[in-house]
């Protein structure tokens, strides 16, 4: 059965109240429980986030064998660090170099590699980003301060299936003496989506 979508419109009810109402309806019938709700929330508030992807990137920067594996079989190499789960069923890692720049989007919704980056930030879900980056990626990147030379090949990945992308950013200069852990501290969420580069320390 298909619901008449107008049935869902509840004018004048703010989302916080709407969420509370939905929760109370399902709780009182025993269809959901508060513990599961808490677990879902806590997982994505604390355990799953861009710090996971940063570990993957730092390891790839310091371990050539791991990097080879990561580019060949992203799912297995990422899974070996314990990062797997919903929205990470099949991971593909794409490498940024001085001549190739990759950037990731989902124009149809906001598909995002949860196990390595957590839930998507607001800019990734914004209509301006979703509409523009497939058509004018250089302009989008420049607006966020990422200027690419004319000789750089730009590759945009629109996440239209269950394949999820992680960008392996370039390791910045001047980081030769840094440890894997210190390097992970430099890696940002935006660089792993490909909208910015990792800044030198």
């Amino acid at each position: 059965m298909t619901t008449d979508i107008e049935d869902t419109v509840a004018p004048g009810i703010e989302p916080a109240l709407r969420a509370e109402a939905l929760e109370s309806l399902l709780l009182e019938r025993g269809l959901i429980d508060t513990k599961t709700i808490e677990t879902f929330i806590r997982t994505y508030e604390t355990a799953v986030g861009p710090m996971n992807g940063a570990k993957v990137v730092a390891k790839a920067w310091t371990d050539p064998e791991y990097k080879r594996w990561l580019l060949e079989d992203g799912t297995a190499a990422i899974g070996s660090l314990g990062f797997k789960g919903p929205q990470g069923e099949h991971m593909v890692v794409v490498e940024n170099t001085p001549t190739v720049h990759n950037v990731v989007v989902c124009t149809l919704c906001s598909c995002y590699p949860w196990p390595v980056l957590g839930l998507p930030p607001s800019w990734y879900k914004d209509p301006a980003y979703r509409s523009r980056v497939v058509k004018e990626p250089r302009a989008v990147l420049a607006e966020w301060g990422t200027e690419l030379g004319p000789d750089v090949e730009v590759r945009v990945h629109d996440s239209s299936s269950e394949v999820r992308y992680l960008v392996l950013p370039e390791r910045p200069a001047g980081t030769e003496s840094m440890s894997e852990e210190e390097l992970a501290g430099l890696v940002t969420r935006d660089a792993m989506v490909g909208v910015r580069k990792v800044a030198a320390p």
Binding site: A16, I37, I41, E45, P121, S122, W123, R130, V140, V195
Partner: peptide, 26 residues
């Protein structure tokens, strides 16, 4: 849908408002 991009806040939390965390789980 074209228009200016929003700013990037590197420290943005998964759920800027509390109700959003509830909506996510629900």
């Amino acid at each position: 849908f074209f228009g200016p991009l929003p700013p990037i806040d590197p420290d943005e939390k998964p759920f800027p408002h509390e109700w959003e965390s509830k909506a996510f789980a629900l």
